[in-house]
């Protein structure tokens, strides 16, 4: 029994566990909008783009959080503007802008020759190196996201469902999109230290898609995705201590396992008529990771 409580003796572990839980809730909830807007790729792209921003802020000597936030919001706004051009399209806009931003970061690193441990953490995550300051940033972003979602619940839902028609009903679509871009960029930045650029996309996509398999109601999907994300963060970090595997990878693998269970359940239920699982299975088509 003593072995099972052993990790809680270490403050850095408890901090990491709290951080992973909060980031799980944050990514699960924000990821619902990402998945339903068919932007699964944006989490992946944005995380890499912000890595470029992190390098630029390091080279320019400004705070990582300030530099990366400005960079992230700028990138999302640029993606939105490029995606509105019919000749380009959303997926291509994400591909071009985020990889160029990432390449800029790599170019600066090779020019300055300082690939420090911090950048390693930004790419792969270093949950047990979370400081009290990082925890405060994660808590702050979660509070911001909760406030925005609460205050603009209907507007966010309407623009996610059908932004064209939302405009005809008087929803200020460009403002809502800009607000969502800010929340998404802040979410990715806050999650960078915990999960790393390479695993953020999974945390944004897997819990919402798992929740979608289990319900047809937006409200329930939102709640389930946040709970699944938070629970997998909590349990994943705890388990990683004992199996001696990277915490971020354990969290994502746990989310993947939950997705497989939900998929198996949905497939089984789809064989029973009138359960609606067949429709839900069809609905998540295409919402997988790139």
């Amino acid at each position: 029994m003593g072995d099972l409580t052993e990790p809680f003796q270490f403050e850095f572990f408890v901090r990491g566990m709290v951080a992973a839980t909060l980031v799980g809730v944050l990514c699960g909830a924000v990821g619902v909008y990402v998945v339903l807007r068919s932007l699964a790729y944006i989490g992946h792209g944005l995380a890499h783009s912000i890595f470029g921003g992190a390098v630029v802020s390091f080279v320019s000597g400004i705070s990582f959080y300030i530099g990366a936030t400005l960079w992230g919001v700028f990138t999302v706004l640029l993606i939105n503007a490029a995606a509105r051009r019919r000749q380009i399209g959303g997926d291509a806009a994400i591909g071009i802008i985020t990889t160029c931003a990432f390449a800029l970061g790599v170019a600066l690193i090779s020019r300055h020759g300082q690939f420090t441990r911090d950048f390693d953490a930004a790419l792969f995550g270093e949950i047990l190196g979370i400081t009290s300051g990082d925890l405060a940033v994660i808590g702050g972003v979660l509070a911001l996201a909760a406030a925005v979602v609460f205050a603009f619940w209907k507007q966010l839902l309407f623009t996610t469902f059908d932004s064209d028609v939302a405009g005809t009903y008087g929803v200020p679509v460009p403002w809502v999109e800009a607000l969502f871009s800010l929340v998404l960029a802040a979410t990715v930045i806050a999650s960078l230290q915990v999960l790393g650029a390479t695993l953020i996309a999974a945390a944004l996509v897997i819990p919402p898609v798992t929740a979608r398999l289990l319900t047809d109601s937006f409200t329930r999907m939102f709640t389930m995705a946040a709970v699944l994300g938070g629970a997998s963060g909590l349990v994943g970090v705890y388990v990683s201590w004992f199996v001696d595997v990277s915490s971020g990878a354990t969290v994502v693998l746990l989310q993947g396992a939950l997705f497989v269970v939900a998929l198996a359940w949905a497939v089984a239920r789809s064989r029973w008529p009138g359960t609606g699982s067949g429709e839900r299975l069809a609905a998540i088509e295409g919402a997988t990771l790139d």
């Binding site: 339903l36 209907k154 839902l157 469902f161 059908d162 028609v165 939302a166 109601s217 937006f218 409200t219």
Partner: peptide, 29 residues
Amino acid sequence: RLGYVPQVEAINWNFPLTVGQAVLLGRWR
């Protein structure tokens, strides 16, 4: 005050929205 009904082809039918939730969007303001 406008009530707009789009073409059915333009609607994302896979969206996790119930009839009640969809209709209440028309009263968001």
